[in-house]
């Protein structure tokens, strides 16, 4: 149908304008800010230099990046191992059950992140639910402190992001031709072999999407390391937070944000390439 340029402009203009003014411009500003430096008395000295980026790769900060990447990577892997069989089970359920089952799995993902994280404090702390349970089971020693370590942070991230990975895997499984199962079994493959040789390779884009998503959301996470790491586990998100609200070094915080966005864009790009390749190859 014919749509005039004017009509399109009226429809798209306000929304794009909002995003341009309150997302593109602020992010551009952060980019520019990252080339300046903190003034002696706080504030910003407008002297162009690469000092912040040099500082970002100082071993002190580089270690925080590596540590964040390790925690985020571990969370992504564990989330995948939990989510894949769950998504596969949903895709094999009777058709009319699939949407409710999927909805039930994804529902927590959209609810309050702070509260979902807090729930784990209630479960894991020294007087918490799990320690009570151990006591009931006859455990007599000191209560176990399960909070404020890397493991608690990984657990919190896995808990919060598993639903999304289930969704990503489920949609890549349902995109497959339903006859693929029968075809493979008609050719004599066992159920396990069908999965391993036929289904798994074709769901690589879903796996990649799930992994990248969890990794990206985890590495820049602030709430989980703050609450479940209790200040003892510092990740990039907390570091940026500190630069802005505690150290008052905005230019350095801005540089760290851009390193983070850079890592994110590279990963998303790789994932898109992988998805495209799989799509092209699938038709052959």
């Amino acid at each position: 149908m014919q749509t005039s340029r004017l009509q399109t402009a009226v429809l798209i203009g306000p929304g794009l304008g909002w995003l341009a003014l309150l997302m593109v411009v602020p992010c551009g500003l952060v980019f520019v800010l990252s080339f300046f430096e903190r003034g002696v008395y706080g504030g910003i000295d407008y002297v162009f230099n690469f000092g912040n980026f040099a500082r970002a790769i100082d071993p002190l900060y580089l270690n925080i990046f590596f540590k964040s990447a390790r925690i985020a990577g571990l969370a992504a892997l564990i989330a995948l191992l939990i989510a894949y069989p769950a998504a596969y089970a949903i895709s094999r359920a009777p058709r009319r059950h699939q949407t409710p089952l999927l909805f039930l799995a994804i529902l927590p993902f959209w609810s309050n992140y702070l509260i979902r994280t807090y729930a784990w404090i209630v479960l894991l702390n020294r007087e918490g639910f799990l320690n009570q349970g151990f006591e009931l089971l006859g455990y007599q020693g000191e209560p176990i402190n399960m909070l404020y370590n890397d493991g608690a942070v990984v657990l919190g991230l896995v808990y919060n992001y598993v639903p999304f990975v289930i969704l990503a895997i489920y949609s890549s499984i349902t995109r497959l031709d339903p006859e693929i199962w029968e075809a493979s079994q008609d050719l004599g493959a066992t159920r396990f072999r069908t999965f391993y040789r036929v289904i798994l390779p074709q769901t690589v884009p879903g796996i990649a999407a799930g992994l990248v998503f969890v990794f990206v959301l985890s590495i820049g996470n602030f709430i989980t390391p703050d609450l479940l790491g209790g200040g003892r586990v510092q990740m990039v998100g907390n570091l940026i937070y500190d630069q802005f609200l505690t150290a008052r070094d905005w230019p350095f915080g801005a540089a760290l944000s851009f390193v983070l966005i850079g890592i994110m864009m590279v990963l998303l790009f790789l994932q898109a390439v992988l998805a495209n390749r799989a799509q092209g190859g699938g038709r052959g």
Binding site: L16, C27, L29, V30, G220, I240, F244, G253, L260, I261
Partner: peptide
């Protein structure tokens, strides 16, 4: 990409960008 960006950009980055702006 522009319309997808707000969903994927880390909250903390958008937060500091808006505060700075």
């Amino acid at each position: 990409a522009l319309l997808f960006a707000p969903m994927i950009i880390p909250d903390i980055v958008l937060a500091i960008a808006l505060l700075a702006f």
